[in-house]
Design a protein around this nucleic acid. Structure first.
Length: 471
RNA sequence: GGCACCAUAGCCAAGAGGUAAGGCAGAGGUCUGCAAAACCUUUAUCUCCAGUUCGAUUCUGGAUGGUGCCUCCA
């Protein structure tokens, strides 16, 4: 597949370092709160990437961290009077609660920053020994001037940075250069700390990712993903730390997703214009949220509004209805196509399946074009619905179409097995209604349908008989 | 001020140098006791101006508008 590499600003054929095995790292959440829809975007995007790579036959080692130590963590824990560990545990559990329902598969490893302290210290020490870092009264800083190609990912150089941001960056007396960043922060009263060669303290933010990558994936990885806002300085600094310490190329393909916007503005915790996934889930199925997210290309911004979510909900239901209908009509379908029309329909659907499966793959191959991939799925839905309307279509063809739909949906993480048995009392009402209809007692039939609706089920009439489903 | 990105129908959203996928909403129709679903039909010269080209919405330059990053941030 081709991947847009932020490093080269172009799409490149993805070839993992080790044939057939991709090593991926994604910046995970700082666990001091529930995550909002904007936070969910990278989780869903790179989960979909992983699913697709696996679909193409690759093995994927997928690491997504939890940042469980930083200023926000400390402040929140202090506010609530609990330990940072307790805070982290609570929101990690909350992360999995929402992520599981969004069908985000668990990473191969979900490391916590605080569990990589040895590697963090090793990295800082190595950087110091190699002359890339210096110690001050407050901590240890990375000396950006010592690195020749600092800024290569975001395409900035120090002169530009210094000129442009001179009035925005608070000058820290201790730092040689205002863009030097903390590798290690010495302990302040009331803060948690770990022992180190520089005394008690805690790691800077950027070094955590460098350490977890080194520890779990090695010095060079294939893909590093994250939000566009992390390009500078976070990922730039990761490169600086890792390449200077390890003396090896760090990341081969950098991927960055766009934002979720509200009224053309980035959804963001600090500005307060955000929607927590768990709150949205009160009104929308988690799968609708995922569908909504995948309906645009991952690098483009997505505007958020209730209207757009409703539109997504309707589109999503179209796919679900198709799946339901196929399953239903398969029950009574003949083993072989019955009649010429059915035979033609079966052949046509077979052709469509091959065509749209290829279209799906082509779309995903092209830098994870999920919008186009969904278009292929919708084409397949229409072809299936059309064929299904032909009486006498054989069970094998129907089930093959359904299976393919599920296969493709599953690559996007948009398929969840559901098992809803229809309770006996509902079935009895359905049967009574069928009898009433047969007797042309429509008033009674409608009354029975209302009763079924009241029980939370829906019944619709089809040429194959009544179809019941959970409403 | 610096560095990027974006601009396609009522809304959302793909897209290739040769006259525009798909979804939602709308309109008409078929089917149906009704309803729902489904199916069929229908709705765009792609922000503007130059340039390259036989031909650009797709490439180049410029303009305008919008967003992001440069400070925690997905």
């Amino acid at each position: 597949m081709r991947i847009y590499n932020t490093k080269t600003r172009s799409k490149e054929e993805f070839v993992p370092l080790e044939a057939g095995h991709a090593k991926i790292y994604v910046c995970g959440p700082t666990v001091y709160n529930y995550f909002h829809l904007g936070n969910a975007r990278p989780f869903i995007t790179y989960d979909t990437l992983r699913r697709y790579l696996e679909y193409t036959g690759m093995t994927v080692t997928y690491v997504q961290n939890f940042t469980d130590i930083d200023d926000k963590m400390i402040n929140k824990a202090n506010d609530e009077g609990i330990t940072i560990r307790e805070l982290a545990d609570r929101y990690i559990e909350a992360y999995f609660h929402d992520a599981d329902r969004l069908n985000i598969r668990r990473a191969t490893i979900h490391p916590r920053a605080t569990e990589s302290m040895d590697t963090i210290i090793w990295l800082v020490k190595t950087l110091e020994e190699k002359g890339y870092a210096y110690e001050t009264g407050g901590g240890v800083y990375f000396d950006v001037a010592k690195m020749d190609d600092y800024g290569k990912l975001s395409r900035r150089n120090l002169e530009e940075l210094a000129f442009g941001a001179s009035d925005r960056v608070d000058s820290n007396e201790e730092k040689k250069n205002s863009f030097d960043f903390a590798l290690w922060k010495k302990k302040k009263p009331g803060e948690p700390s770990w022992p180190s060669p520089w005394g008690e303290g805690r790691p800077g933010w950027h070094i955590e990712c460098s350490a977890m990558i080194k520890q779990h994936l090695g010095d060079t990885i294939d893909i590093h993903g994250g939000g566009q806002d992390l390009v500078f300085p976070h990922h730039e600094n990761e490169i600086a730390q890792s390449e200077c310490a390890n003396a090896k190329p760090f990341v081969r393909y950098w991927m960055h997703n766009g934002f979720i916007n509200i009224d053309q503005e980035k959804m963001s915790k600090s500005t307060g214009n955000f929607f927590l996934v768990r709150d949205l889930a009160q009104n929308y199925d988690y799968m609708v949220l995922r569908f909504f997210m995948l309906s645009g290309h991952y690098r483009m911004p997505i505007n958020f509004s209730a209207e757009l979510l409703s539109a997504a909900e309707n589109g999503w239901e179209r796919i679900q209805t198709c799946l339901d209908n196929l399953e239903f009509i398969a029950q009574a379908a003949p083993a072989k196509p019955d009649g010429e029309e059915a035979l033609a329909a079966a052949q046509q659907l077979g052709k469509a399946m091959a065509q749209f499966k290829q279209a799906f793959i082509d779309a995903m191959d092209d830098d994870l074009n999920t919008a186009d991939a969904l278009a292929a799925i919708f084409e397949l839905v229409r072809a299936s619905n059309s064929a299904a309307a032909v009486a006498g279509l054989d069970r094998e063809t129907i089930l093959a179409a359904r299976k393919l739909l599920i296969e493709l949906l599953d690559v996007l993480g948009l398929y969840q097995e559901k098992s809803d048995e229809i309770p006996e009392d509902v079935m009895k009402l359905v049967n009574d209604r069928t009898a009433a209809k047969k007797a042309r007692d429509f008033e009674r039939a409608d009354n029975l349908r209302d009763q079924i609706t009241d029980k939370g089920y829906a019944v619709v009439d089809t040429p194959q008989g009544p179809k019941v489903s959970k409403a």
